[in-house]
Every structure is written in C-alpha cells, then in structure tokens.
C-alpha cells in the first residue's frame, strides 16, 4: 500500500518538475514549483520523515515560492523557454 501511494505521488512529482521547467510563464513556474514542493513534502511524510516534510512545507511550498514570486515581480514574467 505504501509503495502505491509512493509511486503515485512520485509520478506527480516528476510531472510537476517537468511542467515547472517547461512552462513559458514564470509565474506559472512559481506555482508549479510550489506544487512540486508540496508533493515532495507529501512524499516525505509518507516515508515517515515528518520533520523534513514540515520543513519543506514551510520552506519549499511557503517561503521559497514567495521569494520566487517576489523575484518574478521584480523581473519579467515571460520567457522563451
């Protein structure tokens, strides 16, 4: 059972990762990146790493995304790739 959840979430993670680096809108990237972090955090929670998951939830999905949005706010949103 564990490994099934694990596999599904892992697939999601990879999907989010590919999406995040291929979207042409950087704000979209930021959001997808947040989703990626959150999925990752789930994955870790599944594996029993609650502390790590907690940290990733607050850092990866929280503050990092905010920094990201802030940086996009100060630079450009569009990109060619």
């Amino acid at each position: 059972m564990h490994w099934l959840i694990d596999l599904i979430v892992l697939t999601f993670v990879i999907f989010c990762a590919i999406a995040a680096i291929s979207v042409k809108d950087l704000l979209g990237t930021a959001i997808l990146f947040g989703a990626y972090s959150f999925m990752m955090c789930l994955l870790w929670a599944v594996m029993g790493a609650v502390d790590v998951a907690f940290t990733e939830a607050s850092v990866g999905a929280g503050v990092s995304t905010v920094f990201f949005v802030a940086a996009v706010f100060r630079t450009s949103r569009r990109t060619k790739d």
């Binding site: 609650v50 998951a53 607050s58 929280g62």
Partner: peptide, 11 residues
C-alpha cells in the same frame, strides 16, 4: 513533536 527552531522561524 515535529518542528523546531528553523520551522518555527520560517513560519
């Protein structure tokens, strides 16, 4: 419980 200085600080 899970958490600590770093997580608390970030929050």
């Amino acid at each position: 419980s899970p958490g600590g200085g770093f997580q608390g600080g970030v929050i």
